[in-house]
Measured scan of single mutants.
Amino acid sequence: PREAYIVTIEKGKPGQTVTWYQLRADHPKPDSLISEHPTAQEAMDAKKRYED
């Protein structure tokens, strides 16, 4: 089974940042970016789909 994890990042100019959620996995390479999402819920949904 595949495993993934969610990383929170800040995008934008200082003082005007927006939080994004990255879905990452250690396949095919360590810390590979799988997808980016504007909400934590979307990231969790993507994580479930990826791991299923």
Rank of each mutant, 00 (worst) to 15 (best):
K29L: 14
P38Q: 13
Y5N: 03
P28D: 08
R49Q: 10
L33R: 03
E10C: 13
A43D: 00
H27W: 15
R24S: 02
K48M: 12
G15T: 05
S35G: 03
A40K: 15
G12V: 06
W20F: 08
D31G: 15
T39F: 04
Y21K: 00
D31C: 15
A4K: 01
S32F: 13
P28M: 07
E51W: 06
K13D: 13
H37N: 00
Q41I: 11
T39W: 03
P38V: 09
E10T: 13
A40L: 15
A40W: 15
A43S: 02
A46Y: 04
E42S: 08
R2I: 12
Q16L: 10
E3I: 15
K48N: 09
H37P: 00
A40S: 08
E3T: 15
R2S: 08
I9V: 14
D45M: 12
T17M: 13
P38K: 13
G12H: 06
E36P: 00
E10N: 10
K48A: 12
K29T: 13
W20G: 02
H27M: 10
L23Y: 01
D26G: 12
A4F: 14
H27G: 06
Y21P: 00
P30N: 08
H37E: 01
T39E: 03
Q16R: 11
G15R: 04
K13F: 12
P30A: 10
Q22Y: 03
I9P: 01
Y5C: 04
P14A: 11
P30Q: 09
K11G: 04
Y50G: 02
H27F: 15
R49H: 10
S32A: 07
V7F: 05
S32H: 15
P28G: 07
I6D: 00
P14R: 09
G15C: 06
E51D: 13
M44N: 09
D31Y: 15
E3D: 10
T8H: 07
A25N: 05
D52M: 15
G12T: 06
G12N: 05
R24T: 03
R24K: 14
V7R: 10
L33H: 03
T39L: 04
P14M: 09
A25L: 06
V18C: 08
R49T: 09
G12K: 05
D52N: 14
V7Y: 06
E51H: 07
R24D: 01
V7T: 09
T17V: 10
T19K: 11
L23S: 00
A25T: 15
P38M: 12
R24Y: 13
G15Q: 05
Q16T: 09
I34R: 01
E36Y: 03
T8P: 14
I9K: 06
D45Y: 10
Y50C: 03
A40D: 05
T17R: 11
Y50P: 01
M44G: 06
R2V: 11
Y5G: 01
K29S: 13
A4Q: 02
W20R: 05
K11I: 09
K47Y: 05
D31V: 05
I34G: 00
I6G: 00
K11M: 07
Y21M: 01
Y5H: 06
T8S: 12
K48S: 09
K13N: 12
P1A: 13
A40M: 15
D26P: 13
E3M: 15
D26R: 14
D45Q: 13
P30V: 11
D26W: 09
Q16P: 09
R49E: 09
K13Y: 12
L33F: 11
K11N: 04
V18E: 14
Q22F: 02
D52H: 13
S32W: 11
P28L: 12
R24M: 10
E51A: 07
D26K: 14
I9T: 07
P14I: 11
Q16G: 10
S35Y: 01
A4I: 10
D45I: 14
A43L: 01
Y50Q: 03
D31R: 11
I34D: 00
K29R: 12
S35F: 01
I9C: 08
E36H: 02
Q16F: 14
A4Y: 14
D52T: 15
L23G: 00
I6Q: 00
V18D: 10
K48G: 07
L33Y: 05
H27Q: 13
T19Y: 08
A40V: 15
I9G: 02
R24A: 02
P38H: 09
E10M: 11
T8Q: 12
E51T: 08
Q22T: 04
D26L: 12
R49M: 11
D52F: 13
A46I: 01
Q16S: 12
T17K: 12
I9D: 02
I6P: 00
L33Q: 03
E10K: 11
E10D: 09
A43M: 01
A46K: 02
K47V: 03
L33P: 03
A40Y: 15
T19V: 12
Y50K: 02
K29Y: 15
K13L: 14
A46H: 04
G15V: 03
A4H: 05
K11S: 05
T17E: 12
A43I: 02
E36I: 07
P14S: 08
I6S: 00
P38S: 11
R2L: 11
T19N: 06
D45G: 06
P30T: 08
S35E: 02
T19A: 05
P30M: 09
Q16K: 12
R49V: 12
R24F: 11
G12E: 04
A40T: 06
Y50T: 02
K11P: 02
Q16C: 14
H27N: 10
Y21Q: 00
Q16D: 12
Y5L: 03
I34Y: 03
P38T: 12
K48I: 12
Y50F: 11
